[in-house]
């Protein structure tokens, strides 16, 4: 059992999702290698070497990998995969983008979004927006897996793995980076925040989200949103929580002006404590909330902020 984990990082720092993925990998066997692919990614590689349970860190540092183009990342990982029984990546937008290319190139199925490891070939994963949990068994020689990070704890970071650089470069030359608009925020990232305050269509407009930001600032929280709030242009897409947005499981999730459609619940119902603030007492969100407050959010949210 040799396991390869693909790290999620921004070249400088390692993203938390990597740590949860290493935990999943460690449940499969104790020979875990970590691959850091990037451009000037020495910082991330150094952080990767400290993850407990990692035997070796492989580093592919080249301009061809600067924007994580799926074609280039996919071919590199495909080439490396032959020596491994399992290849795992976090189910982030990067992992979801290149991993199926690896699976198809290896002629194996991919097991998406696992939340539990049953054995070396059997895994649990949510289907139908989390309304059912499937246990699936793979008969493929290499298991290509994406990991839902909320299903696994973060690995510790008191290790010291050897670092090895790879000189292999795969540049397919069929896709190119044009530009990016990344959200700048001093708040914690949604997927790793301990507290999340989310707003829905009930917020009315984008400016009103500042009420949630003030609550978030007091709680050290991230701010999320429903699809309706994103579609209406209140907030950017990277704030969407749900079946087809981000999957989160913080200690505390506060849903404000969100009705609780199954697609939204799919992204947050594993939160430890859920609070719902909604003026409609029939809103389905109250069925999953530990604490529900039936109130107009324009009264309740400022009051909440004052009391924190």
């Amino acid at each position: 059992m040799r396991i390869l984990v693909i790290a999620e990082h921004d070249n400088v720092t390692l993203k938390g999702a990597t740590l949860n993925t290493v935990t999943a990998a460690a449940q499969l066997g104790d020979d875990v290698d970590l691959l850091v692919v990037g451009d000037n990614c020495g910082g991330a590689a150094e952080a990767a070497a400290k993850i407990s349970g990692v035997s070796k860190v492989l580093v592919a540092d080249n301009a061809a990998y600067s924007h994580k183009l799926a074609e280039n990342l996919g071919s590199l990982v495909t080439e490396l995969a032959s020596g491994y029984s399992h290849v795992l990546a976090p189910a982030t937008s990067t992992g979801k983008n290149f991993m199926p290319r690896v699976a198809a190139a290896l002629d194996v199925a991919q097991i998406s979004d696992i939340i539990a490891v049953e054995s070396a070939d059997t895994f649990k994963r949510p289907i139908y927006a989390g309304n059912a949990i499937a246990t699936v068994q793979s008969s493929d020689s290499v298991k290509v897996i994406t990991v839902r990070t909320t299903g696994f704890d973060a690995a510790a970071t008191d290790g010291s793995a050897a670092v090895e650089s790879l000189d292999k470069v795969t540049d397919a030359g069929i896709s190119a980076f044009v530009k990016e608009e990344l959200a700048q925020s001093d708040r914690p990232e949604l997927t790793s925040a301990k507290v999340i305050v989310s707003g829905g269509r009930g917020m009315g407009n984008g400016e009103n989200f500042s009420m949630l930001e003030q609550v978030a600032d007091k709680l050290g929280a991230a701010v999320g949103a429903s699809r309706a709030a994103v579609d209406a242009g209140f907030v950017p897409n990277d704030m969407q929580v749900g079946q087809t947005g981000k999957i989160v499981a913080p200690e505390l999730y506060i849903a404000v002006g969100i009705s609780g459609a199954i697609q939204h619940l799919a992204g947050m119902k594993d939160s430890k404590v859920i609070v719902a603030i909604n003026k409609d007492e029939e809103a389905p969100i109250f069925q999953v909330a530990d604490y529900g407050l039936v109130a107009d959010l324009f009264d309740a949210v400022p009051e909440l902020e004052r009391q924190l």
């Binding site: 194996v108 199925a109 097991i111 059997t122 949510p126 289907i127 989390g130 309304n131 059912a132 949990i133 499937a134 246990t135 699936v136 068994q137 793979s138 008969s139 493929d140 505390l252 119902k269 404590v273 859920i274 609070v275 007492e281 109250f286 069925q287 999953v288 909330a289 530990d290 604490y291 529900g292 407050l293 039936v294 109130a295 309740a300 009051e303 909440l304 009391q307 924190l308």
Partner: peptide, 30 residues
């Protein structure tokens, strides 16, 4: 198929919570 579904089960149900009467009570509970 390369993947075989061995079992499909419902997700863990959340315990029904409570409705609080005010923001004060909410903050106190939290």
């Amino acid at each position: 198929p390369r993947l075989k579904t061995l079992k499909v089960e419902p997700p863990a149900e959340r315990q029904a919570g409570i409705i609080v009467g005010s923001v004060d009570e909410l903050v106190e509970k939290l």
